[in-house]
C-alpha cells in the first residue's frame, strides 16, 4: 500500500495555517457590521489581520491546535491499520515542525507525550466507500471551544423541553448563551439530534465540515439553522464576548435515529478559527481544499 504520510503532513499544515475562505469572508462581513471603534470591531479586525499573517508566515492560526480529528473515506482494499500509522507519523512530523502544539496529555497524570500521539489520540474515524480514491477531512478542534460543547437529554428535570424541533431550539439557544465568548466567538455550532450519547456528538462535530453557506437538505432543519443563526446573534454576546452583533457565524444541524426512550441534543462549539480542510488523493494527484 502506498504511503501517504507526507500528504497527511501537508493536510495538517494547510489546516493549521490557512483558514478556509468561507470562514474568512464571514468574519470580514461581520467586521463591517460592528459599530465603528467598538471593541467588537477591533477584535474582528485583529482576527482578520492574524489570519493573513498566519497564511503568509506558515504559522498556526491559533496556538491551541487542539485535538486533530481525522475522517478518512477509503476505497476497498486499503488497510485502516496502515492509514492510522501514517496519520500518527504525520502528526509527529507536523508537531516537530511547529505546525501543531504538543497537545496529548495523559488524562490523570497530565503528562504530555510530546508528539501529539497517545491513547486514542489523534482521533481518526474511518469509512470505506464506493469510490476508488481516498478522501480525508481534518478538523483541528481547540480545547476552549470544546469545553463549551454540551449535551441535553430532553426532557429532564433540569431541562424541561419538548421532544420536537422547538425543544431542539431551546437547547441550542441555551448552549450558545452558556458559552458566552469563552469558545472564541464568533463560533460555529454543530448540532446532532437523536442517536446515543456518543453518535449524537460525533454527528454534531461532522456538521462542522459543512461549508458555511450551504443549505440543509432537510427543509425543517434548514429553516431552524437560519432562525437559530439569527436568534443567537440577537443575544448580543458578540466577538470575544465583548458585546456585538455577531456571536455565531453559522448553525449546522443533522438528525439520527434514536431509541424511543432517548432524545439527545448535542452541541459542538467551534471557535472562529474554524480549521477544517479536505484532502483527496485521486490517481496520484493530491488536492487540499476548503469543504
Amino acid at each position: 500500500m502506498q504511503d501517504f504520510t507526507d500528504q497527511f503532513v501537508e493536510l495538517i499544515k494547510s489546516t493549521s495555517t490557512d483558514l478556509s475562505p468561507d470562514v474568512e469572508n464571514a468574519l470580514a462581513a461581520a467586521c463591517k457590521q460592528e459599530a465603528k471603534g467598538s471593541a467588537a470591531e477591533g477584535a474582528l479586525a485583529t482576527i482578520l489581520e492574524n489570519i493573513k499573517l498566519s497564511r503568509e508566515t506558515g504559522r498556526p492560526i491559533c496556538q491551541d491546535t487542539g485535538t486533530p480529528i481525522f475522517h478518512v473515506w477509503y476505497p476497498m482494499g486499503v488497510s485502516q491499520r496502515s492509514l492510522r500509522e501514517q496519520i500518527k507519523s504525520a502528526v509527529r512530523i507536523a508537531t516537530e515542525r511547529a505546525c501543531l502544539r504538543p497537545n496529548a496529555v495523559a488524562a490523570l497524570s497530565g503528562k504530555n507525550s510530546g508528539d501529539n500521539t497517545g491513547v486514542d489520540f489523534p482521533t481518526v474515524h474511518f469509512d470505506e466507500w464506493e469510490h476508488d480514491y481516498l478522501k480525508a477531512g481534518l478538523l483541528l478542534k481547540g480545547g476552549g471551544s470544546e469545553n463549551c460543547g454540551c449535551q441535553y437529554s430532553v426532557p429532564s428535570p433540569e431541562f424541561p423541553a419538548s421532544r420536537d424541533i422547538s425543544g431542539v431550539r431551546k437547547a441550542v439557544l441555551e448552549a450558545a448563551c452558556k458559552a458566552q465568548g469563552m469558545g472564541c466567538a464568533p463560533g460555529i455550532l454543530g448540532v446532532g439530534i437523536g442517536g446515543d450519547r456518543a453518535t449524537s456528538m460525533i454527528k454534531a462535530k461532522e456538521q462542522l465540515f459543512r461549508p458555511l453557506g450551504d443549505a440543509n437538505p432537510d427543509p425543517e432543519l434548514d429553516q431552524m439553522e437560519k432562525r437559530l443563526h439569527r436568534e443567537i446573534n440577537e443575544l448580543g454576546i458578540g466577538p470575544m464576548g465583548f458585546g456585538g452583533k455577531t456571536t455565531v457565524l453559522g448553525v449546522k444541524m443533522a438528525q439520527l435515529h434514536r431509541v424511543p426512550a432517548s432524545f439527545f441534543v448535542s452541541v459542538a462549539y467551534m471557535c472562529w478559527a474554524d480549521r477544517r480542510k479536505i484532502m483527496t488523493i485521486k490517481n496520484g494527484k493530491v488536492t487540499i481544499e476548503a469543504p
Binding site: T46, I47, N50, L53, I61, M240, C271, W272
Partner: peptide
C-alpha cells in the same frame, strides 16, 4: 482581555523568551 486565536500576531509581540520553568509540565503548561 487579549484576542483569542490571534496567535502569530501576539507571538510577534513576544520579543524574547527569557527562561522556561517546569518544562516537565509540557510545553503548553
Amino acid at each position: 482581555h487579549a484576542i483569542g486565536g490571534a496567535a502569530p500576531l501576539i507571538a510577534e509581540c513576544c520579543k524574547e523568551v527569557l527562561d522556561v520553568y517546569k518544562l516537565d509540565f509540557g510545553v503548553p503548561e
